[in-house]
């Protein structure tokens, strides 16, 4: 009796193990987790064109950076029962992948910026500046979140990330390199256009 019981247990164990192994090896289909939360539905709403404008931006440097920004504070809350004072920790840590574009705004370029004769040309262009620091929602990862955060606080934190990316980029001499690249690019273009001597300056 004991022996047959032991055999039954062993057979059951073998079946369970086999089942588990087959599940692990993806031979058997996985059961859907009945308690998995359904994704949030985003309706397909129309896109509105607010403005279309002509620009003339020569983008010469693209700088990528990843920064971690955090905001935290420890507040105390009064409770109706002892110990009456309850500390609340609020913290938000974001990992932000940003992209900075530096270049020249050529929209105000006119004939006064060009001088020279048939063979030589002198062009004066505006100095390079940061044209845009791009931080899109897909570039932001919420690493840690405790407590409730309103939209203004989150926007301020992302602005802090943008500021840090700009600072890092400037420390790497992005504007100088952007200036240099723009001068070389325009000079090469004009040499290809037939000018023998081309001088491009920025100020």
């Amino acid at each position: 009796m004991t022996r047959s019981l032991r055999n039954i247990i062993l057979i059951l164990l073998a079946i369970i193990t086999a089942f588990w192994l087959l599940r692990r090896t993806d031979v058997l289909p996985k059961w859907k987790n009945p308690f998995a939360a359904q994704p949030i539905t985003i309706d397909n709403t129309p896109l509105l064109v607010k403005n279309v404008r002509s620009i003339a931006q020569l983008m010469t440097i693209e700088y990528h950076d990843v920064v971690v920004v955090d905001s935290s504070n420890n507040r105390t809350k009064l409770l109706p029962l002892p110990p009456f004072v309850f500390p609340i920790k609020q913290s938000l840590v974001l990992v932000v992948k940003g992209r900075l574009i530096a270049g020249l705004d050529l929209s105000r370029l006119d004939s006064s910026n060009f001088s020279g004769n048939r063979d030589s040309l002198h062009i004066t262009m505006p100095k390079a500046r940061v044209l845009e620091v791009i931080v899109n929602p897909t570039d932001v990862e919420t690493f840690s979140e405790e407590g409730a955060w309103n939209q203004q606080a989150v926007t301020a934190l992302k602005a802090k990330a943008q500021y840090r990316i700009t600072k890092n980029a400037l420390n790497q001499g992005v504007l100088r390199r952007s200036d240099e690249k723009a001068r070389n690019l325009v000079a090469q273009l004009m040499v290809n256009a037939g000018y023998k001597k081309v001088v491009v300056t920025t100020k």
Partner: peptide, 26 residues
């Protein structure tokens, strides 16, 4: 991290959208 390029942007579009999100399916 740092890439040189030479792109001339000539048109900028400003687009607006109202995103409608619902969480009721669970």
């Amino acid at each position: 991290q740092l890439r040189e390029m030479g792109q001339l942007a000539t048109t900028e579009y400003e687009l607006s959208k109202v995103v409608r999100a619902r969480d009721e399916a669970t």
